[in-house]
Amino acid sequence: MSDRRPPAPETDLSVRLGPVELAHPLVDASGTLDVLEYARRYDGDYLADFPYAAYVPKTVTADPRTGNPPPRVTETPSGVINAIGLENPGVHAWIAQLGEWAALRAPVLVSVGGNSPEQYAAVISALEAHLAAAPPGTVPDVRGYELNVSCPNVVGGLQIGADPTATAEVVGACRAATARFLLTKLTPNVRDVTEAGAAALGAGADGLSLVNTFKAMVLDRDTLRPFLGNRTGGLCGPAIKPIALRMVAEVARAFPDTPLVGMGGVMTGLDALEFIACGATAVAVGAANFTSFEAPQRILAELRDEVAARGFGTVGEARGIALRA
């Protein structure tokens, strides 16, 4: 449905995120797109037409969570603030629904949350047991996990990601529970983002994704009281992009050969290319999913044009350009 001209087909946008082959660098940021909800609101076969190169679902936890009191979301200057609070049905109900989107054509990186190493590992163990016993065609193509140790809107989430020791404990417990690709999603709400990154990699993570949202606050303009039911929330969108780029560059410089998923306010193909130039292997699109159903197709077409216009034969040639001396 993009209004743009068809992209130049000769530009190779494929990337390898660790062991996961991606047709192009774009994935969705966890919690911003639900394939089943879109499938219900689409005339075609959304599971076949899924525009991202991999699907990162909304974070799942061991037990059901009802999330934070409303209001939970509002717009800010060049941004969006949210405090959903990891609302989800819990891993067992979540597993029971897997058959409904088993036909999704993209590899899946499951976002996992919790309050303790045991809770994170319990989610992974439950899913691994199900995947091992599931007949072919009854489950989606789960290739790995993204450990969400960085949600600013739940008790425990941010604290784990801000504490390298606690981060290592969670990653270590999850590493013991799966042989699949393991990403750890870092919080930007720290003095040095590479510290938790080093802890995660040291404990067995295969790659890192960053950044999660910035802990922030917005006031009701009439009452001057906190607007969100949770009082504080996480800020995303274009407002955070320059900080996210700096942090991705710091992590890429510190861990040069590590698979990285960069994110933070990607609205255009050029934004995505900037994250790749800062060292990202793949790029997650978050708030832009709220702006239109067609945002991923548009951003992908723009990325292809940006790569071709610069004379790169592959998108990988752009990786790390911003890190050069």
Binding site: D34, Y38, P69, V73, T74, I84
Partner: peptide, 27 residues
């Protein structure tokens, strides 16, 4: 009515309390 981000069921930003628990205004 509620403040919404996606409007299409994905983000769970627009929930309200109901007798059936928290439900999304958009969905």
């Amino acid at each position: 009515e509620a403040h919404m981000a996606c409007g299409t069921g994905s983000c769970h930003g627009c929930v309200v309390d109901t007798a059936r628990g928290k439900l999304r205004v958009c969905s």
